[in-house]
Amino acid sequence: MLLPLACTALFFPGFFRLCAWGLRRALPRWPLNDCLTFSSRLTSSIQAVLASVSGLLVMWTCDNVITCRHWLAQEYIWVLIPYMTYDLGAMYICYWYRNRGEDKKHTFTIFKNFLKHDRLMLTHHIFILTVLVPIAQVLRGERGDFFVGCIFAAEFSTPFVSLGRILILLKKQHTFLYKVNGILTLGTFLCFRILIFPFMYWSYSQKKGLRLLQTPFHIPIYCNVINSLLIMPQLYWFALLCKKAIQMFDTSQIKKAS
């Protein structure tokens, strides 16, 4: 417990700072905010790869979705806690450098605007730290490692989301790679952030011999509430991704017509 907690508490902010420092040295003409954004996206991608691989391993090896145990379902939580804490700080640092005035002070107005601008993502992170972590580590007992793995696997789409942002920083948003990555972002987000929830219900129904629509009525109500709270922001973000994809498609059509 203490080893992964301590190591990752040092690794994530340390890598973020080292990456930003390296970019400033390698690309001195880049704005500091772009270096910080690039670094935060790269750090998020590393965590997402670790989480999704851990989740897929748990899902793959758990033959019984209710009682099967896997050490990663317990241990990776101690990686997730420092990452979520770090990411809250990194989000504010990036926002401050993007919106600071000429006086370059940490004003209360900037902090208040940050809370308003990123309130959904902040709520998502705080919900994971204050609700999901206690449930995953204590309240669920020795059951449900498979479903914890499913939640970890939801991070599978994050590297593609981050790559899209990085390509925009590099002024590559009109390239073929950007369009392919956009398609992969939509596909992985749909599968791992939205369809993963009905998949969990289906997996439980198969084990219990229930119909899919009967499953919500045979599990604790708090499971349904938590799943609803988790999927709602995913649906909102997916709608935003679809909107961006449509805009990208319309732009390409205009270029073809011209």
Rank of each mutant, 00 (worst) to 15 (best):
H218F: 14
L212G: 01
L72W: 10
L120W: 11
F199V: 02
L10H: 13
F127D: 02
Q253V: 15
L32F: 12
L10C: 14
V79S: 06
T185E: 04
K243W: 12
L120M: 11
P4N: 14
F199W: 12
N227Q: 14
L88H: 03
A153F: 15
A239K: 13
Y83N: 09
F16P: 00
L88F: 09
F11R: 06
R140N: 05
F199T: 06
L5C: 07
R29F: 09
W60N: 08
F176T: 13
L139G: 08
L115G: 11
I93M: 06
Q47E: 06
F114Q: 06
Q206R: 14
C68Y: 07
V161R: 03
L32I: 15
Y76Q: 11
K243H: 14
A153P: 04
K208T: 15
L23Q: 01
R165M: 11
T109H: 10
N181I: 09
I166E: 07
L5A: 12
I81Y: 14
F127A: 13
S205G: 06
G101P: 08
S157Q: 04
P13H: 09
T130N: 09
K256G: 06
T123D: 09
L42Q: 02
A73N: 05
Y83Q: 11
L5V: 11
F16G: 00
A48F: 02
W96S: 01
L88T: 03
V53F: 06
C7M: 15
D103P: 03
A239P: 08
L122D: 08
L2F: 15
F217G: 10
Q137M: 15
P4C: 10
L42K: 07
L184A: 05
G187E: 08
R29T: 03
V161M: 01
V225Y: 13
L72D: 08
C223N: 13
A51G: 04
G209R: 08
C223A: 12
G22T: 07
K243A: 15
K256S: 06
F192N: 05
H70A: 04
E102H: 10
F108V: 00
A48Y: 08
L27Y: 11
L57Y: 05
L229D: 04
K244G: 12
G187R: 00
P216H: 06
L3C: 10
V148Y: 04
G182F: 00
S54Q: 04
R119C: 15
K112D: 14
K172T: 04
K105Q: 11
F12C: 02
G149H: 02
Y83D: 02
I246C: 09
S258I: 06
L88W: 03
P82Y: 06
K171W: 07
I221H: 13
E155V: 03
C150H: 06
L88N: 05
K104L: 08
L129P: 02
F111Q: 05
R98K: 13
L18T: 05
P159W: 00
M91I: 10
L177D: 00
A51S: 11
Y178H: 14
G209T: 09
T43M: 07
L56S: 10
L3E: 11
A9V: 03
M91H: 04
T67R: 14
A153Q: 03
Y86D: 04
R98D: 05
I221G: 12
K243Q: 15
H106L: 05
S205N: 02
